[in-house]
Amino acid sequence: MDRWVLIIAIILAAVAAIQGARHVRRGSKSRWTVLWMLFCFIAQLSVLSLRGEMRACCPLGDTGEVLIFSAWSLTIFYMVVGSVYRLSLLGVFTAPLVCFLLSIALMPGLLDTSPERKIVVDGWRESHAAFSVLAYGALGLAAVAGVMFIVLNRQLKEAHTGTGLFANLPPARDLNQVVERLLWLGFSLLTLGLICGLVMEKSGAANKHLYVALGQWGSYALLLFWGWMRGMPPRKLAITAVVLFVLSLLIFPLIN
């Protein structure tokens, strides 16, 4: 059942991505992207709910669940940020990433068919996982906004302004602010996740995971501290947000 709902979520994300891309090519606004993403969000929520029932705890027990949770948090931040900043195009850029993460989660072996039901639940461990994945959502969306900034910046620099994409991209300064705010939000959630991680009961593997997480946290801290103290050209900030997120995704294989 959970897999079928996951397939529905993938289809909805794909529809949002394709329809959004078609609108961008035509140079018109993709008002429906938000709606498709909302349906996709509901489908993801249903999958997580079903998985949570099966596990009797937060559904973050395997790589597949982590990927679904990440896609879900990416979508929820898009729903909030997209409407606040009227960045409907952010959905067009977010949808393919959500679709990609959900598709990977569906690959054989990543999503346990009969997950182990937990009898004792460690609250700190659950909170650590939930905060960390939510942080991934915010940082992922910062990377998406960063990509949008890089594209717009290039078009502005080269005076390549006649495309539908250029017409629909939000202003450069707004995008830069979105990247900055999402980085701060993601970093705050990451910090909470890390604190919970330091308190929870640890195994050998968990220690290894924590060192990597500390490295990731330190990188984001350095980026934000540098930007706050000395300022940073918007393009550099955007590129760093993208690079750090891609590197963060590489931590997944270390989780299990």
Binding site: G27, S28, L152, L156, T161, G162, F166, A167, L169, P170, P171, A172, R173, D174
Partner: peptide, 26 residues
Amino acid sequence: RTNTRIQMGATSVGNVAVDLAEKIFG
């Protein structure tokens, strides 16, 4: 106006400059 690009792009130097400024600063 919705289905064509008849009003797309500024046609005077002044308006091009202002449109670009809005694309940079909002």
